[in-house]
Design a protein around this nucleic acid. Sequence first.
DNA 1: TCTTGACCTTACCATTATGGGAAGGTCTAT
DNA 2: ATAGACCTTCCCATAATGGTAAGGTCAAGA
Lengths: 136, 136
Amino acid sequence: MNIGQAADASGVSAKMIRYYEQIGLIRPPSRTGSNYRVYGSDEVHVLRFIRRARTLGFSIEETGALLALWQDKTRASGEVRDIASEHIAALETKIAELESMVGTLKHLVHCCHGDNRPDCPILDDLAGTTSKTKGH
Amino acid sequence: MNIGQAADASGVSAKMIRYYEQIGLIRPPSRTGSNYRVYGSDEVHVLRFIRRARTLGFSIEETGALLALWQDKTRASGEVRDIASEHIAALETKIAELESMVGTLKHLVHCCHGDNRPDCPILDDLAGTTSKTKGH
DNA sequence: TCTTGACCTTACCATTATGGGAAGGTCTAT
DNA sequence: ATAGACCTTCCCATAATGGTAAGGTCAAGA
């Protein structure tokens, strides 16, 4: 299987497959006489694993750790759970931050009359000219 | 005021102040005879505006648009509200994605026994060997 | 006055993960 | 043989921020 077919089969672009190889996330595949990379179903399986982990928001570094645990027959599943739990905590922190932003912005938009008058509560807030953001 | 003092007064690092100048977000300040940048309260005010917008998750490009509207006395506040509303929508999309990831991961962690047994539902899911992720 | 330390200047490099493109080699079907 | 669809490597770009290095400047104290 050439890299294009492996890309189609795994959902990882050829560009990314080469990149993952370059940074050492996956091992260099064998090559044909004309220097084409050759992949088999094992490699595609690994690539699918990587794609799934990335979809779940794991960084490439975390993905590498999960991959190592996946391929380690003597692993303790507790390690995997720890990585996942930390990742959940990081995601939830991020969500809370975004929700805080949305809350502030919704309040500002709610206060904005949206016509041609030159005063605008949103800009006033950004400029820090209002005493308070919250509290109607 | 030198750049360090402007940084302290605005909460924007000196590094970032120079960067904002370089990309044209703010205008080059005047210089002393020894080529030091000189800032006044107007510039600090602009920097605070930028910092607040960045804190609210606006990109630098969006921040530049808001800044232009802020400084445009003939602006329509509807334009500002539109930028903010689009930004809220983008943030909410991002939140939904993150929550979806968290939901899946929490389920997997819940299913994981976390001991030394070699089977691990989280890795199984990543590898795609389980028929379903959801549904106990 | 000289030195020291804190500040400033520019310029370059690194980060994260991904895409785009160029220049050139290869394979397959017509 | 030739066209078109592949493949190869190499370089560049993204968004926003931090770091570092080499060198100039300024203020205060010995």
